[in-house]
Design a protein around this nucleic acid. Structure first.
Length: 885
RNA sequence: GCCGAGGUGGCGGAAUCGGUAGACGCAGCGGAUUCAAAAUCCGCCGCCGCAAGGUGUAAGGGUUCGAGUCCCUUCCUCGGCACCA
């Protein structure tokens, strides 16, 4: 243990370069399977290589790195990989703008962003780096897709897409602005084209049920997934009819299918409502212009959720009639704007007596409202049924059937069973589970994605590419120009022989949804170099991911698809896990001040925070802001997410260059708990930097003043310390205990603050004796280790330079010592009748009686008890004593 | 509308089982150092009050020796969503 001299001045750049060089030379983060140690797979969501890192990345990866380094020091075998979600639309857009091939643009971005990540000192095993645009990665997308085809999980059907008639291309939803193509301004059409689907609905039950096993996921994410999957248990049945089209064919084989969760109310049906796109609506509109206009309006109606919530229920009669399946009575069919074609069969039975929407609709159009459910009140009498108190009636499952013939008196479950049985007997329906979840369409009519491995042959149809011909490699020199998929012009790619008959055939040019790429990358990180198999036994060692970290915006799609993919891979015998992510942390977004000015000429003009000056009142509250440019006021809009358009983004690169990676990391961890939003603050960055300078300075003091006083033989274990040193040592160990507790909670802001408190205590403590030197060296060693996952560079340097050991990452994580925490005398809070009135000091071993006596005898007690006797004395051991007068 | 999270100083945020509310940091104020400034260091910093003390965790009520924390009612903010039959 040889200590070096630590210079006075803290130079982050040099310190960080040196630390990173050390990690590089020792291959510090490269890991392999080691069954002798517990493993910890720590994964942050891999970035899209958009060009450069943004603050969200820095926050995300810092959280992951803190957990990685903490677990490494705790003795875990930790894997933290990194890769690139490299396919996607922005690369094509960049290509259109700059005439650069998406491949080159993407790989340049990857190279730059990788440098940025490395400059932040993340403990990443770069030997496992994966980019989804590499053929040796996406080969396995194709391979698994073929397995899914074999199993029937992947299948082909037509899909509705947004079609730009000018560019002759399919548009993504975000490329459609106000119904027009984003580049051409042409009115977008709906087109039906064939595409491939994955039967995620086959796994709906398991995807829903297994949510209960994900105890370490945020509750809200599980709820969002459950709602998305949307399971409803009910009855699907048909209203028979004789409605025929012009050619005389029965519409829907003479059946109007509906789904209901309230089959017990079937005798209360007073009409049916169908969606605007329903075949019966289409038929009725043929000689009814008013209805045709209404249907047209519904189709173009807003699908915005805010409109939906306030939308008036509207409808029109079709003039068509179906028959009630149990009573045979005629039932009128209406078109209702509140019925969705995309859910169930696009039609509902309407029971206005017991359903809110049906009720509003019936009221508006004066349709009959009938009671078929009743309920007893507390006195056992039937509650009155009245349309004035309709709120009390819809939705309730607590009542029993009335006015329902043979079902009268049955409760909800019994009535549903009886009705379902009768419908089944009449061959009119049966119980059914209805899902909101839809199968996953993965075909994209885009260039920059994984080719779907299919060959179209005139004779053999759509033929899967044989495994031996995988991967189907995407030509990388295409430059999309916005009009159609450039693969359609690549003759060398298109022309291929049919694998079945050998005749000339044509390659599929659709590519896969990029969500496919990200649905299994975490498994590939365990064995990225295997060119013989998608995954191997190494996945059994590392998977599942112990800690996954990413944005809440992926709460539904990415996480659901990954869960689905895991189950499919499991069923194919490729992996042993059913759920890929054991624990999930969804980090909050990074916000910054918003400044704008509204003018009639230019609309809203946004100001970057560095372009304005804030005005404060005497108390420091922000009262306004002015532009530096012209001194005129600008509107202060509070905090909002960092965005280019609002000009409030902060480039991490400039922050790293100014203050260093450690400062950036410390600020990110300190400013707020990981799940909450983080408000950007230049002053906060300064504060973080100030703290690290103080840490450095204390290291300098230890190297120059403290260490030279160290005795040859350590005495700390046995010696009785002077009071001030015992207090210092105890405080640091208490803070350590707190920090360890907070790390378990993943509450890193208070871990950071614990290190600040340690330094405050050390700076104030004595340092001019050999025993003090021993205490300081022990305590500073604790501080450095607790701080090291957050600011690894400066702590690496100080740990080494002060001679603790070569590599702080290899050091053991500190635990508080009982000997340091023990104290002879403790201070208890003194309350008189529940009000705090000071404190009493008692020996640590004092029993209840002694504490009571000491409390009553204390000066404060005498003063505030005013001579009255104590009615009761409450003693909370180690905390307080309360004298009730 | 429904579901979820939350409401604590000028600000970000602490407070593990109900036990000294406001830790730590930022901003602000005062002082030291300096020719001066920056940097640094020391001190103050919820509100009312000269003080003793009182009061205070969105509002109101309750349970308790004791409530930011538990229960009830109301209000507000943010996030998510599906008119899902």
């Amino acid at each position: 243990m040889s200590a070096q001299h630590i210079p006075e001045k803290f130079e982050p750049t040099a310190v960080e370069k040196a630390a990173q060089a050390f990690w590089e030379s020792t291959q510090a983060f490269k890991v392999s399977e080691d069954p002798s140690r517990p493993k910890y797979y720590c994964l942050s969501m891999f970035p899209y290589p958009s060009g450069k890192l943004h603050m969200g990345h820095v926050r995300n990866y810092t959280i992951g790195d803190v957990l990685t380094r903490f677990h490494k020091m705790r003795g875990f075998n930790v894997l933290q990989p990194m890769g690139w979600d490299a396919f996607g639309l922005p690369a094509e857009n960049a290509a259109i703008q700059n005439s650069v091939p998406p491949a080159k643009w993407t790989r340049d971005n990857i190279a730059y962003m990788k440098k940025q990540l490395q400059s932040l000192g993340f403990a990443i095993d770069w030997s496992r780096e994966v980019a989804t645009c590499d053929a040796d990665y996406y080969k396995w997308n194709q391979w698994l897709f073929l397995r899914m085809l074999e199993k029937g999980i992947a299948y082909k059907k037509t899909q509705v897409v947004n079609w730009d008639p000018v560019d002759q291309t399919v548009l993504a939803n975000e490329q459609v602005i106000d119904g027009r193509g984003w580049r051409t301004g042409a009115v977008v059409e709906k087109r039906e084209i064939p595409g491939y689907y994955l039967a995620i609905t086959d796994y709906a039950e398991e995807l829903l049920g297994d949510l209960d096993t994900l105890d370490d996921w945020p509750e809200r994410v599980r709820l969002m997934q459950a709602n998305w999957i949307g399971k409803s248990t009910g009855v699907r049945f048909a209203f028979p009819h004789d409605i025929r089209d012009a050619s005389g064919a029965l519409i829907g084989d003479g059946k109007l299918w509906v789904f209901t969760t309230r089959a017990d109310t079937i005798m209360g049906v007073t009409f049916c409502a169908v969606a605007a796109e329903h075949p019966l609506a289409t038929l009725a509109a043929q000689n009814n212009p008013e209805l045709a206009a209404f249907i047209e309006k519904c189709k173009h109606g807003s699908v915005m959720e805010a409109d939906m919530a306030t939308m008036e229920k509207e409808g029109l009669p079709t003039g068509l009639t179906v028959r009630h399946p149990l009573t045979g009575k005629p039932v009128d069919v209406w078109v209702g704007n509140y019925v969705l074609m995309s859910y169930g069969d696009g039609a509902v039975m309407a029971v206005p007596g017991h359903d809110e929407r049906d009720f509003h609709f019936a009221q508006k159009y004066s349709l009959p409202i009938e009671q078929v459910i009743s309920e007893k009140d507390a006195e056992g009498r039937d509650k009155p049924f009245s349309t004035d108190a309709w709120q009390e009636w819809y939705g309730t499952k607590d009542g029993y059937c009335v006015n329902s013939g043979k079902y009268d008196g049955l409760g909800y479950t019994a009535a549903v069973d009886a009705v379902a049985a009768d419908l089944k007997a009449a061959q009119a329906g049966d119980k059914k589970v209805q899902w909101r979840l839809r199968d996953w369409g993965i075909s994209r009519q885009r260039y920059w994605g994984c080719p779907i491995p299919i060959i179209h042959c005139d004779d053999c149809g759509s033929v899967p590419v044989p495994d031996s011909q995988l991967p189907v490699v995407l030509p990388e020199d295409c430059v999309p120009d916005g009009s159609g998929n450039p693969l359609n012009k690549r003759e060398d790619f298109l022309h291929v022989d049919c694998p079945q008959c050998g005749k000339a055939a044509r390659r599929e040019t659709d590519t896969m949804d990029t969500f496919v790429d990200s649905s299994w990358y975490y498994a590939r990180f365990t064995c990225p170099n295997n060119d013989q198999a998608m995954v191997d036994a190494r996945a059994d060692y590392w998977m599942p991911v112990d800690q996954y970290i990413g944005g809440i915006e992926h709460a539904i799609l990415h996480l659901l698809y990954s869960r689905f993919w895991s189950k499919v891979m499991g069923d194919l015998g490729l992996v042993k896990y059913r759920e890929p992510f054991k624990r999930l942390l969804t980090q909050g977004m990074v916000l910054n001040h918003l400044f704008s000015r509204r003018s009639d000429k230019t609309g809203i003009e946004w100001f970057a925070p560095e372009e304005v000056e804030l005005q404060h009142d005497a108390s420091g509250r922000v009262t306004g802001a002015t532009a530096l440019r012209d001194g005129q006021p600008v509107d202060y809009g509070g905090f909002g997410t960092m965005s280019k358009s609002k000009r409030n983004g902060v480039d991490p690169q400039s922050m790293i260059e100014t203050y260093g990676a450690d400062t950036a990391r410390f600020f990110m961890m300190f400013a707020s708990p990981p799940e909450q939003t983080l408000e950007w603050s230049d002053a906060g960055i300064e504060g973080a930097h100030r703290f690290l300078k103080r840490v450095w300075n204390f290291g300098h003091v230890v190297s120059t003043v403290v260490r030279p006083q160290l005795p040859a033989q350590a005495t700390l274990g046995s010696a009785k310390l002077p009071d001030d040193l015992a207090a210092l040592r105890r405080e640091v160990h208490l803070l350590l205990r707190q920090a360890n507790y907070d790390l378990g909670k993943q509450q890193f802001n208070t871990v950071a603050s614990a290190t600040m408190k340690m330094l405050n205590a050390l700076e104030k403590g004595p340092r001019d004796s050999s025993i003090a030197a021993e205490v300081i060296v022990e305590c500073f060693g604790i501080l450095l280790r607790v701080l090291s996952p957050i600011t690894p560079h400066v702590t690496h340097y100080l740990w080494d330079a002060l001679g603790y050991s070569k590599d702080i990452l290899a050091a053991e994580w500190p635990e508080p010592l009982e000997a340091a925490l023990a104290q002879d005398e403790i201070e208890l809070v003194l309350q008189i009748s529940g009000k705090t009135r000071g404190a009493v000091k008692v020996p640590a071993q004092a029993d209840r009686a002694a504490i009571e006596a000491a409390a009553v005898a204390s000066e404060a007690a005498q003063k505030f008890m005013e001579g009255k006797p104590a009615k009761k004395v409450i003693v909370v051991p180690g905390r307080l004593v309360n004298i009730v007068v």
